[in-house]
Amino acid sequence: MAELSFKDFASDQEVRWCPGCGDYSILKAVQRALASCGADPANTVFVSGIGCAARLPYYIESYGFHTIHGRAPAIATGVKLANPELNVWVITGDGDGLSIGGNHLLHALRRNIDLNILLFNNEIYGLTKGQYSPTSRIGTTSPSSPGGSVDNPVRPGAFAVGAGATFIARGIDIDQKGLPDILTAARAHRGAAFVEILQNCIVYNKDVFDSVSSRKTASDHQIRVEHGQPLLYGPDQDKGLRLNTKTLQLEAVQVGAQGIDEVLIHDETNPTLALMLLNLAPPLPTAIGVIHRRQAEPFEQAFWNAKPRERRQRVVTLLHQGNLVDHRQSASSESAADFR
């Protein structure tokens, strides 16, 4: 089979996001990941809820189901249970996945059903014209919070750790090198894979992730994690993260001065380390990459375990169980006709 290109996964639909929206680059990264995996469009399903992100299934050449607000994980659960051979993706956003649909996201993650869940986090409600979202930082001014929002934001990654997710990653929309690799890893993971993608809403929350994603500042504001490798960052990889055993918190350390021995080695199987990395906040860098990954039985496997996938018993045997009354007397009287 010839090498696939990202173009093989472009549907015939015109893409209708705002010019400059981060969703364009995420779409491309998804198409690249599918191409590099040699995904079969017939066995690939994209399920989405409501929001700007949720339009993505229309633009991918595969099966796609654009559903209702917040419920994509539930609907995708039904798809995966009905046919575990399918490769099922859930496309959601910070409002769809963590506000109206937070419950379904929680349960998809704790069940560990084999879905690839991509949460486009732009920290704002885009499609309803810019109200603050559950991931908006305190003080976000918006049409519904002109004086600045006062709600504490939820941290998507920490939420996923709490739900017992077995795969948690974070990527950046414009990162066409790193994001397809993260998506490929999510697809390969057996169980629920949760990927938070920092996405720039060019209209309502422009450049909110600029310090993390822009080339000029990225090296100081993001840390790329890799299993088995030291947690280093900075323009020359000269900074690292170590555990302060007194405060039980991560802190920055200058590699040159204090050596590399104190720097933590990333262990993606450790959910406690994952939680610390996912909660890193400025001035510490934002963690990017596969932050947590461990093996556990996927839900659809446990669900079908020891159950036949096809009908083996005829209903007639069930009908003749229970409290049987078998008189088999002849229906001679007239009133028997009246009986049923």
């Binding site: 559903t67 659960t77 039904g78 798809v79 419950n103 379904h104």
Partner: peptide, 17 residues
């Protein structure tokens, strides 16, 4: 399912598949 909405959602997903 985890709630009524998830129950109908999963049923719809099953029919879709």
């Amino acid at each position: 399912a985890e709630d009524e909405i998830a129950a109908v959602g999963a049923a719809i997903g099953a029919s879709y598949a």
